[in-house]
Amino acid sequence: MARVFRPGNLKEALHFLDAERAAVLAGGTDFMLKAGRYPGAEFAVLSIGHLHELKRIAIDAANVLSLGAVCTLSEILESPLVPLFLKLPIAEIGSPAIRNAATAGGNVCNASPAGDVLPMLYALDATLVLKSHGDQHEMQIRDFIQGPGLIRIAAGQMLTEIRIPLRQTWRCTWRKVGGRRANSVSKTSFYALIDRTSRGLGDVRIALGAIAPTVVRSREAERIILDAYRGKPSQRCTEIIALYDALISPIDDSRSCRDYRRTVSLGLLENFLTEVMRI
């Protein structure tokens, strides 16, 4: 039987992690599937889903949204502090019962290529707060996620908070492509933000999900898109698409095939460039 520790507070939790290597359990929607494959296995588990300190949702003076790691997806959807461009992808994850249990931190730490919380966090330059007993680090999400199921986290460290710099002017385009309208794992996903101010287009961000081991985002391409938008005719739509085409490496699996993923991912990009950006 697994040894499970249920700390009274964050300090106790970090103290426990400092002393031993343990699997961290939050909402359990993925954890329980994995644990079920090893019935009776001996391992240590730190259960943190109940810690109020990790359930905080707040916006600070610098307009950075802070999401506690064990906020459930439903809690995020219900918070008046969370802007729509963060809620759209979350509203399409799993089903109501899954969203009531699954946590934002869990989706990040699972590091699934198809994790639907991830593209927007990449696009928004989210940082992750990693705490350990007596220490605290911040890390960019793109540095944290190394590959499918692989994250850069040191012994004793725990993800406690996701920090997302907000802009009121962000407008988002989100498309999840799954096999059905609920309870489906993304075949591919597209997330883009534009910041259109009175002076014109200030910024553009594009993140592609489920078409590579990790989310694909290219600052270089985004700069080129901005240039193209601002009228530098040298960069045409097809060249921008070719840039992304070189970055993605979709796979065949039980849900779809690489050809479809590539075609649709780039098709959504093209549609965004022509219909939203009007390039």
Binding site: S95, G179, R180, R181, A182, N183, S184, V185, S254, R255
Partner: peptide, 24 residues
């Protein structure tokens, strides 16, 4: 969709073998 690869069904769960939900 239920595909076979080398004689083994690829969609062996209700996530991968998709039947319509109330939204479909």
């Amino acid at each position: 969709v239920l595909d076979m690869k080398a004689g083994r069904p690829l969609q062996c769960s209700l996530t991968d073998y998709m039947i319509p939900t109330s939204l479909d």
